[in-house]
Simulated scan of single mutants.
Amino acid sequence: MAFRIFPEDEQVIELLVHMSQCVTTSVDLLAEHLSAADDRTGETLQALLDTEDECSNLYFSLMTTTRSSYVVPIPRQDLYILGQWILKSVEALVACAETQQLYKIDRPTSHATEQLNVIRLMSEMTSKAMGRLATLDELDDYWFEMIRLSRQSERTHRTYRASLLDKHKAPHAIRRMDAADRLLDASRALGHVSAEVGRVLVSES
């Protein structure tokens, strides 16, 4: 084992885990928002905005901790990229809720529910993976499973768009597709997280 004058600062790992948990919280809040009665949507949207703020603050803490630490478990630029994509996933989920609110879209379809289930699973796997970055243990399986889930999300999105165009007139379909695109943005952001983890595995092996 290599001797280090300064121990690794694993606080950065904890911050990434907490950021990933913000994604899971956002998925749950978005699911609640999409099915909430009209008099509760303001409350659920505010909870989503608060979670977005929390994730942004965690990202700021990640950056300041990374810059001030002598030794971090993985390269500093990788920590920046991982945090950036996790935050983008939260932002996309919040944007979906805001789009739903602005366009006054009624209850979501089964395709939206399926997408949320996939994103939640991706977020849970990402939280566990972030906790393993210090050792890089069992991350190969995470990376491979995230590829599968990303493909599932892309297929669901294509089916979702086709269904909207088939069942709704163009203006209404476009509004719904705007919200659907934000869900895809969230899953793609998590896919970028796993791709970055794969790159770290290759470069650190």
Rank of each mutant, 00 (worst) to 15 (best):
K104R: 15
I86K: 00
L116R: 06
D78E: 11
S110L: 14
S127R: 14
C96I: 01
L87A: 04
S61Q: 12
V72D: 02
D106R: 05
S110K: 15
S68K: 15
R120D: 04
I74H: 02
I119N: 08
F60S: 14
R67T: 15
V90R: 02
L62D: 05
L116N: 00
M125K: 10
T135C: 00
Q84R: 12
T99K: 11
T109P: 08
G83M: 08
C96Y: 05
I74Y: 04
K88P: 10
F60M: 13
R76Y: 07
S89N: 01
T113Y: 10
V71T: 15
Q115G: 13
A95D: 13
D106E: 11
L87S: 09
L82Y: 00
L93E: 00
Y59K: 15
E91Y: 13
T65C: 03
K104F: 09
Y59S: 13
D106P: 04
E124P: 01
S89P: 05
S68W: 06
L121M: 09
A129L: 02
W85N: 14
K88V: 07
L133K: 00
Q101R: 10
Y70S: 13
R120P: 02
F60K: 15
S127A: 15
E98F: 06
G83R: 10
E91M: 13
W85P: 03
Q84D: 11
W85S: 10
M130Y: 03
C96S: 12
A95I: 04
L136M: 08
V90N: 04
V94D: 06
I105T: 05
Y70G: 08
L87E: 12
T99M: 13
H111C: 07
T113I: 15
H111T: 08
V90P: 05
Q115M: 14
T65L: 03
E124G: 06
S61C: 08
G131E: 09
M63T: 12
D106C: 05
L79A: 06
V118N: 04
L93C: 04
K88H: 12
Y59W: 12
I74A: 05
Q77T: 11
I86M: 07
I74F: 05
T135I: 03
Q77I: 11
L87I: 07
A97S: 07
F60A: 15
F60Y: 14
A97Q: 06
T64V: 11
L121P: 03
T64E: 13
V72A: 03
K88Y: 10
P108Y: 01
T65R: 12
L102C: 09
I86G: 01
L82R: 01
Y103T: 06
S69Y: 10
S123V: 03
T66D: 03
A129C: 06
M125A: 11
T64G: 03
S69Q: 01
F60Q: 11
M130G: 09
M122P: 02
K128N: 14
A134E: 10
S61D: 14
K104N: 11
L116V: 04
I105C: 01
L93Q: 00
R132H: 11
V94G: 00
T66A: 08
N117M: 09
V94W: 01
L93P: 01
T64D: 09
S110Y: 09
K128S: 13
A129R: 00
A112Y: 10
A129T: 02
S68F: 08
L116M: 05
L62I: 04
Y103W: 07
F60N: 14
W85R: 14
W85I: 07
K128Y: 08
T126Q: 08
L116W: 01
P73I: 02
T113F: 09
E114M: 11
